[in-house]
């Protein structure tokens, strides 16, 4: 638990910094009351709320990312044991990565990485 005490104390420092930015702001600003303003649209009033279903055209890449990212988790424990296990660990891991990368190449050829 002790090492996480350091993490916790840095978190507290971060919150203290944010809090003091706010406190100093309230002391020196021309008004502590926030200005209510419509969003900036080149000088025009908004004709609808911007929060909506946003068409993210790169969504196929998110699936690809998810697959590879889960695999990525194996890399950390693997990195620690490579020296002990030896060549077989390297061969196994890179065969696995190679197979995964074939899938990436396939997705690329299908146009999953282009979004215009």
């Amino acid at each position: 638990m002790t090492p996480y005490l350091g993490v916790l104390s840095l978190l507290l420092v971060a919150l203290a910094v944010i809090g003091s930015v706010w406190a100093v702001h309230r002391l020196v600003t021309v008004t502590a009351q926030p200005l209510r303003s419509p969003p900036f649209l080149s000088g025009w009033p908004p004709s609808e709320h911007a929060l909506s279903r946003f068409h993210a055209r790169w969504y196929p890449a998110t699936l690809l990312f998810l697959a590879f990212d889960v695999e990525m988790l194996f890399m950390y424990p693997w990195a620690v044991v490579v020296a002990r296990v030896g060549l077989s660990a390297v061969v196994e891991m890179f065969l696995f990565l190679g197979v995964l990368f074939v899938a990436v190449v396939w997705a690329w050829r299908e146009g999953a990485l282009r979004w215009t």
Partner: peptide
Amino acid sequence: IPLAGSGPDRDGLEMDVLNVPLG
């Protein structure tokens, strides 16, 4: 302010549209 309406997109899906003037 009204909520965003929707319209068909190029893949034939129904997608929200936003009016964003530039300039």
